[in-house]
């Protein structure tokens, strides 16, 4: 446990002494801020129109602002997570520091979990930036916090699943660009896998839609915590961690 924290602390420090953390948080902040503004402006305008014409059902902030924003945030993380994970192992392999880590009395699993924890904390920073934006809705509106909380839980799960897969791909190469591109490609594939579900035969369609990360975040964004979605993300996380562990081990046998 102590080793996990030591590794996580070191990784986090590296994120914040190199520009990566600031770039990720800045890009995330600006883009989310833009989405937030446009969603809110749209909401306000529609609300005013409704009032003017005097017909209309009351509009729900959660449904018109929070929910699309949470989905947007999952797209933003699709782009930003590769930036977070690509260096995790690739950099250590390139600079030779992996030799220090693998000859230290640290279990491989502790190393993997430590790195994942640090990456998760940085990703958590991204969620925090989003939350700061969203908290305005509580001051100036009547948003409901429960669906938001469910959505954030979903995003945390989605993020960790992405991070664990990105971490896995980073163990395959000593080139950060290669790791980053592979990660981005895989995420995009997982993202669009759902598209074929409507055209393909039932089984293929069902499988594709189950594999796709999109289908699983939608429920969370609505504020629904479905066990199936939780199980999906947890199994992806488990798979990522397990395979990273294996990949590290194979590094010793192969090199």
């Amino acid at each position: 446990m102590r080793n996990i924290l030591t590794i996580a602390r070191k990784e986090l420090k590296t994120y914040f002494t190199s520009p990566i953390a600031y770039i990720v948080l800045a890009i995330g902040g600006v883009i989310f801020g833009f989405f937030f503004y446009s969603a809110l402006a749209f909401f306000v305008q529609r609300g005013m129109e409704m009032e003017m014409y005097g017909r209309g059902t009351p509009m729900n902030v959660n449904e018109y602002v929070v929910r699309p924003l949470l989905l947007n945030l999952s797209v933003i993380s699709l782009f930003l997570v590769p930036m977070i994970t690509m260096r995790l192992y690739a950099e250590e392999k390139r600079s030779g520091t992996i030799e220090l880590l693998l000859t230290s009395p640290v279990r491989d699993l502790e190393l993997v979990l430590g790195k994942l924890l640090a990456a998760f904390l940085l990703f958590g920073g991204l969620l925090l930036v989003a939350l700061i934006n969203l908290s305005l809705l509580f001051f100036f509106g009547n948003a409901d916090w429960k669906p938001l909380l469910a959505g954030l839980l979903g995003l945390a799960l989605l993020g960790t699943a992405f991070l664990s897969l990105g971490m896995l791909l980073s163990t395959f190469t000593s080139n950060q660009i290669v790791a980053g591109s592979l990660t981005f490609g895989l995420f995009l594939m997982l993202w669009v896998a759902d598209w074929v579900s409507s055209y393909s035969g039932t089984t293929v369609g069902q499988v594709a839609s189950y594999i796709s990360v999109t289908t699983h975040i939608e429920n969370f964004a609505k504020g629904v915590i479905d066990l199936r979605d939780v199980v999906y993300y947890l199994s992806v996380i488990f798979l990522g961690v397990f395979l990273t562990h294996r990949s590290l081990e194979s590094l010793r046998w192969r090199s």
Partner: peptide
């Protein structure tokens, strides 16, 4: 173990690095 290329993290400071290695 001192590998052929010292395994250093360029963004760390000397004392901080040694403390990290000590911990792991």
């Amino acid at each position: 173990y001192l590998p052929e290329l010292p395994p250093l993290y360029p963004e760390m400071r000397v004392a901080e690095y040694l403390a990290f290695v000590g911990r792991i």
